[in-house]
Structures are given as C-alpha cells and as structure tokens.
C-alpha cells in the first residue's frame, strides 16, 4: 500500500477507534472518585495481614505474587531473546579456538574517555551500587523494590563501561555470571513459592515470620522475593546492555584490528 493509502485507511480506522475508546472511558467513575472494592479492602486489611507498609509491594509480591512471577519470566524470556538475536556477531568474530580465552578480551578496545569522566564515573559506581541495594531491600517499606533497584544496579555495570573499564568488567562479570544472575532471580522467585508447598500450604504462601511492621526484617517472603527480583532484573538488564555493547565493541575491533 502507498503511504497515502495507508494514511487514509488509518485515518478511517483511528477515527472509529477513538470514538469507541472515548465512549468506553465515559463510563468510568469520575476522576478522583474511584471506590473499587479490591483496593479499598486491601488498604484496610493488608498492613495487619502482611506487616508491610508499602502496600504496592504487598500486592505485587504477595496477594498477586503469581502475576509477578509471570512478569519476572517475561523479563527472562525477553533477555534470552535479545541474547539469541544479537549472538551472530559473536560467532562471526570469534573463531572456535579462541572463544573461551580470557586473554583475547584484552584486545577489545574500550572507548577513550577523559580522565575527569573516568574519575567521576569510578567515584559514582560505589554509591550507585549502594543506592540500588537500598532500593531493593526496602521495597516492602517505602517506594522501591526489586524491579526499580535492579535497574539501578544494572546502571552501575554501565558506569563501569563508560569509565573505560569494560575489559575489567568482562573479567569481573563475564556473560555467564549475568546469565546465572538472571536464572537465579527467576528461579529463586519460583523456589520461594515452593516454601509454601513444603509446609503443606498453597504455592507462594507467605509462611515466613512476618516480623515487626516497619522494620527491615519484616513481611516474610516479600523481602526475599524482592531480593530475588532485584538479582534477576539487574542480571537481565546487564545482559541486555552487554549484548548491545558486545556488538559495538566487536565492530570497533574489526575496524582497528
């Protein structure tokens, strides 16, 4: 279809679509006046039931924990997909006998960075990791948790790259480590679910001691799941970034070497 034909077809379609959508939205309760029974019930009972002050975490990792297990595996599958799609260049560049040689990595040029950036970047790595861990660990108390903290942790890995320490990164966290983190995160989530089964209750039942509301060591499995998710998300995002970076680096390597 020509661009014009496509535009015309779409114009017709989107007109109908928008009218339908607005018609549907018109049936919603007015903005700010929502009284859904699910949320109201949870707001009333959840803190006492789960000893978590962050209700969003309680819903995500306990009441609807099975959904989140599915989400964690979406992340897992997407990361595997990226690894598959971007694998080609690695095969092209590496001849069979040099695949596992660490020494080969030395030849990979990292981008040149000025000393100022380098120092700043290196100085930021520590705080970033700490900040990420803090966000992961306090998910059940305050805003944050494994998903957000995991991404922050992955940016720490990126900082290492930006400061030109990519070669070091490859030595410290080669791909298999990020892959392992990815599997430990997703598999660990499922394993925590089994604790419930072992005690004769349903899968993903929060059977651990709930602790004192408001303390770090509280709300049972929610904290553990947050940690597993944090590991999984950090591993997943690092793997994605590494795969994209691998590509650019290999190209550069081919050009220079």
């Amino acid at each position: 279809m020509s661009l014009r034909g496509r535009r015309n077809l779409f114009a017709l379609g989107v007109l109908g679509f928008s009218v339908l959508f607005l018609w549907g939205l018109n049936g919603l309760p007015a903005f700010g006046h929502y009284e859904g029974v699910y949320g109201i019930t949870l707001n009333r009972v959840a803190v006492t039931q789960r000893h978590a002050t962050n209700l969003v975490a309680a819903v995500t990792f306990d009441y609807r924990g099975f959904d989140t297990l599915g989400e964690e595996f979406i992340l897992f599958a997407a990361v595997v997909g990226v690894a598959i799609l971007l694998r080609a260049q690695r095969d092209e560049a590496a001849t069979p006998d040099e695949e596992d040689e660490e020494t080969k990595d030395e030849s990979r040029d990292a981008p040149h960075t000025s000393d100022a950036v380098r120092v700043l970047g290196l100085a930021l790595i520590g705080p970033t990791v700490l900040f990420g861990l803090y966000i992961v660990a306090h998910g059940h108390l305050t805003p944050g948790g494994g998903f957000q903290g995991g991404v922050v942790l992955a940016t720490a890995a990126l900082l290492v790259y930006l400061t030109g320490e990519y070669v070091a990164l490859r030595r410290v966290s080669p791909e298999s480590v990020t892959e392992l983190a990815e599997s430990v995160g997703a598999g660990g989530y499922a394993a925590i679910g089994f604790i419930g089964l072992l005690t004769g209750q349903a899968f993903l039942t929060n059977v651990l001691p709930l602790g004192m509301t408001g303390q770090l060591n509280s709300s049972g499995t929610i904290l553990l799941i947050n940690l597993a998710v944090g590991v999984g998300v950090a591993g997943g995002f690092s793997l994605i970034l590494a795969e994209f970076l691998e590509q650019t680096l290999l190209v550069r390597e081919r050009e220079h070497g």
Partner: peptide, 19 residues
C-alpha cells in the same frame, strides 16, 4: 509485509468490530 499496513488494518478492525 509492511508493518504499517498491518497496524492500519488492525485499527480499522477494532473500529469495525466496535461499530
């Protein structure tokens, strides 16, 4: 084989079904 065409048809499909 053009993804833009496909999405245009998808939009039309929703509109027609809705109508």
């Amino acid at each position: 084989g053009h993804v833009g065409d496909y999405v245009a048809w998808l939009t039309v499909g929703v509109a027609v079904l809705g109508g």
